[in-house]
Simulated assay, not measured.
Amino acid sequence: MTDHSLSQDEYDAITDAAAHWCMRLHAEDCTAQERLAFEQWRSAHPLHAFEYEAMLEIWDVAGDLPRPEPAVVVPMVPVKSQSPWRTFGMAAAVCALALPLAAYSGWNLGWLPNSYQHFEATNNIRQVTLNDGSKVELNLGSELTYSNYKDRRQVTLKKGEAFFSVSHDTGHPFVVKAAEGKIRVTGTRFNVWMYEDQVKVNLIEGSVLVSSNDDLPGDGLRLGPSMQASYRQGDYIPQISQTYDNDNALAWLNGKLVLDDLALNDALPLINRYLENPLMVADHNTGAIRIGGIYNIKELNSLVATLPKVLPVYLTRNKEGNPVLNSIPQQPPKS
């Protein structure tokens, strides 16, 4: 995004201000007055918000950097106090001079990527090509980032669902981070579905290693074709199961959601992935009611209103405004 009405100096000043606000808003001592000042700055020009979002993406990547060891404290000679903006300007100048060397060192150590991409799919399925040549199809409401490191290619699935056709490179593994776990491959085709803290991995071709916790030692459990791994936050190891030719996990590639006689408790995470306000169940009995059918993923918001017409349920709203399904009590048999 560019604005031809701004000079290069003005554009650079906006970039510097965006970096300043990114640091301040992540600082523990950031005050309410500063946050208000930031909101006023961000709304003053469309480019302010754009540059700040770009800084946040860089901040996310930098979050993977190892923390440096505590430095030895050297007594400092007192100097005259400086304004925060002058202090930031000096820091920015030092960073500008150090950046090429830091980036080179960070790449060689495997800390910093030499390329970075960000993709989102909102109302349509989106096909994208990563810088390594891998192909990805993003489902509705999905978001991911790609970073190319010296020792790995890393995708972070921030939300939603994606189907990967990974370019083969044995010496440069492809890692997908989803929730607290990861999927590690060299070249294969697989699907990753994520909703809140739930993740499902379906392997179509090749092999992958799935771990439910990135902090655990080892690379995880190996999947072969037609296998599925699922995990939730806090799981020590993923749950492994076999899939079959009629498995419907990839129906979204054709714009469909297939519910094959599922209990509502199992169906709702699949449905809620597409809803603005998640659908809830009132109790265990309601959650046990079964649902089936084939639905257009672009029309699932209209499904909520039709459920009472096809299931023994009625709709209410909870205090957060979310729709809640309640089972209709069965009439006792007449004596």
Rank of each mutant, 00 (worst) to 15 (best):
G218Q: 12
A162R: 03
N191T: 08
W193V: 00
D197H: 12
P173C: 01
E180L: 01
A251P: 00
G187K: 05
A229W: 13
G220W: 06
Q198M: 09
T188L: 07
Y149D: 10
A179M: 04
T145Q: 08
S165Y: 04
L203I: 06
L223I: 11
N202M: 05
S134P: 12
A178Y: 06
Y146W: 14
L216W: 08
E161P: 03
D247Y: 01
D260I: 06
E196W: 04
S230P: 02
T243P: 10
S142Q: 11
G255Y: 01
K182C: 12
Y195M: 05
N139Y: 04
P225I: 05
V210T: 07
H172K: 03
Y149N: 05
S142W: 15
H168Y: 09
L216A: 13
E137C: 09
F190T: 11
Q233I: 02
N248V: 15
E196T: 15
L216Q: 14
D219Y: 09
L253W: 03
H172L: 03
Q154T: 13
S226K: 11
E180D: 13
Y149A: 04
R232K: 14
T170V: 11
F174N: 00
V210G: 03
V175W: 00
G234E: 14
P173A: 00
T188K: 12
L209K: 10
V185E: 10
V199H: 02
L259P: 15
E161S: 07
S212V: 05
N213D: 15
H168V: 02
R153H: 09
M194F: 02
Q233C: 06
P173E: 02
I240D: 14
D219A: 12
I237L: 14
D215F: 01
Y146S: 09
V176T: 00
S211N: 09
N248Q: 13
L209T: 00
D245I: 10
A229R: 06
V185D: 09
R152M: 14
A229P: 12
L221Q: 02
I183F: 05
R153Q: 15
K182V: 06
S226T: 07
G141D: 03
P173G: 00
R232Q: 15
G160V: 13
V155M: 01
S165C: 11
Y236H: 11
S142F: 15
R152H: 10
Q228D: 14
S226P: 00
Q228L: 09
T188E: 10
S211L: 08
D151K: 02
Y236Q: 09
L221H: 01
G218E: 14
E180I: 00
E180W: 00
G218N: 12
N139Q: 03
V176G: 02
G234Y: 11
L223D: 07
S211C: 04
R153M: 14
L221W: 04
S241I: 02
F190M: 10
S147E: 12
Y244W: 05
L259K: 07
V201M: 03
F174K: 01
K182M: 07
I237H: 03
K159E: 08
L209M: 10
E137V: 15
N131C: 14
I237C: 00
G224F: 07
D245M: 08
E143A: 08
D151I: 00
G255R: 11
I204A: 14
V258E: 06
L157M: 05
T188F: 05
P238V: 06
L130E: 01
T156S: 07
Y231P: 06
